Each structure stands twice: as structure tokens, then as C-alpha cells.
Simulated assay, not measured.
Amino acid sequence: MNELNNARPQAYISKRHSGFTLVEMVAVIVILGIVSLGVTNFIGNSTQMYVDTAERDDILSRSRYTVERLNRAIRYALPNSIRVAANQPPGQDVNAHCMEYFPIEWSTFYLSIATGADDPITTIEGPDMVSALNSANSGYDDTDEQDHYVVIYPTDPDQVYVSEAELTDDDGRIVRVQDVRDSSRDGLKEVEFQDEISFDEESTVERFYIVSDPISYCLVLESGSYNLYMLTDYGILEDQVADIDVLEITHGASKVLMAEDLTNDISEITNGQLNNNRPFDEAPFRVEDSRLQRNSIVHTLLMFERNDEVVVFNNEIHMQNSP
């Protein structure tokens, strides 16, 4: 009897610990759900932070590359050759805004030139100095000489954006290059023109530039978003063209996409200003003319956006070269 009584409590205790109650199971499920939700949110937030950071880094790197390349190009532009224009189709908002300039291929100092009543000349000489665009190479790069021009003392864009007839005229400030060769005197280059010329004025520092065909950077509205293009190989146009289709189809320009996802609102601008003549903050390109105290200044404003992230580059570029 005593042995039976001693066995009963043991069996009872074993039965109580043979499983879980409903309350315990529900509690475990709730706890696991809370933990799972926390882990999921943590992983999701971490993943989203990584994606956001990667996209931010991508737009920063792309925009910085574009802006740096643009700024470097502007610094090597022919003095007083930068001009801006907007394209506004009849009855529509502005859909493109362009900046155009002559890129410098080489610059040096002339020994003498013909001006005014002097007899026209076909050649000038100057020291074979370091190339303006590539400091690693000394002297003038004679590639594509026929597409190069000599410019002396440009003070206004109208003096260099001239017709083909004026390029071969016997006066002016820009003339087409025929040949560049070593001079008979050591250390000098001799530049030959296609025709005789007597230049309008002497440079105050006796400097002349050799430039290539103009280049345009255009911010264009396409399918509801703005893209930045570089256009080349269309020659010299007296009147600036801000329609990239006309530059491509009519003038044979080559187009290269420089950047996407820009958000500058150019719909109301006219050559960098609002129609009511107030300065327009979102104009991508603006030019301040040179003064007696300084060279000209180019303002560039490019606004990049991706997934509601906006990166703004607002630059003021002081032209390094002077006529």
C-alpha cells in the first residue's frame, strides 16, 4: 500500500510535463512573430539603406564627371566666344537651352601681323609653346589642320561666328588654317593661311589662338525629362542653333549623350532670362561679359534627380584666357 501511494505522485508529475498548454503555444507564436517582424524590418531597412546609398553614390559620380568635364571644356574655350541660346518652337515652351564655344587647340605669341593699311600676309610665326589642351604634349598637334582657324583679339562672339566667305576674306579676326610647319628659325612655328589677310586689330599681348570647329552643350527636353548632349562637327554657324535636330539633320552634327535625369525647368527661359527679363535661376548656362577688371564669367547650373534625390551643381567659372 505504501508502495502504491508513493508511485501515484510520480505518475501525476510526469503527466503534467508531457506537453504545452494552448496559452504557452500562443505566447510562443506571438513572440516568434514579433521577433520575425523585427528581423524582417531590420533586414528590409538595411537593404533599402544600401540601395539608396548606392543610387546616391551613382548619381553623384555621374553628375560630378559630367560637371567636371563641362567645366574643364569651358576653361579652354576661346575668350569671348561663348554664347547661349534657347530653342522655343512656335506656340510652345522652350525645349532646349544650349551653350556654344570654340575650343582652343593651341595658343602662342606672334612676332608680327598685318593690320589696317598694312599689306595682307599669308603666314605668321610664333614660339612652339605647350598645347593649351594637352600639357603632356608640347607644341601644336597638326591633326586636321584644315578644320582649324587662327583667331587674333576676339572681343565679341560676332567676330568669330562668321560666314564661309568671311573666313577667306582679306580682313577680320578669324581665318582658316592651311598649314602649320616648323619655321626656318629654331623654336618657331609658321602658320600659313588659305588666303591673304590683314587682321582688324593687334592683340594687346600679341597673342594668337588656333581653334577647331565650335562645340555645343545642350540641355534638351525629351519624353518629359531633360538630357544633356554634346554636339560637334557641324562647322561655324553665324546664328546660333539650339535645335539639336536641325544641327544633326541639316548641319551633320555628331551627338553624344552626356547626362540623364536632369530637372532644370527651362520652359520659360529665353537665352538665360525669363520672358519678363528677370534672371532665371534654373537656366543651365549664363554668361557675364568681360569687363576692364576681369574676364568673362560662365555660370552653369545642373540639377540631377533620381528617386526624389536631387543633387545641384552651381558653378561660377572665371575664364582663364584673355584676348
Rank of each mutant, 00 (worst) to 15 (best):
A165K: 09
T53N: 14
I13M: 06
P127K: 15
L221C: 00
V84N: 00
S135W: 10
T250R: 13
R8A: 12
I236H: 02
A242L: 02
I174T: 08
S46Q: 10
N307M: 12
N277G: 02
H17W: 00
G187H: 05
R286C: 05
R16T: 10
F109T: 13
T143G: 06
P79H: 03
R176Q: 15
V311S: 11
V150M: 06
R306A: 10
L133A: 06
I266P: 03
T263Q: 04
K15C: 05
Y226W: 00
V35D: 05
R64E: 14
T115Y: 10
N137T: 12
M25Y: 09
Y226T: 08
N95W: 06
G139R: 11
R173F: 05
R294W: 03
L274A: 14
L247Y: 04
T122A: 09
I31S: 07
E288C: 02
M230L: 07
E201W: 00
R294Q: 13
F109Q: 13
W106M: 09
T40E: 00
P279M: 07
D57P: 01
E164K: 13
V311Q: 12
T47R: 07
M99C: 01
V23M: 13
S63D: 07
V312T: 15
A132C: 14
A86I: 00
E166Q: 14
P127F: 11
A73K: 00
V35R: 06
R291V: 09
V191Y: 02
V151Q: 07
V28E: 06
S112Y: 05
R75E: 13
G44M: 12
Q92Y: 04
G33S: 15
P90S: 10
Y110M: 04
R62G: 11
Y229M: 04
D243M: 03
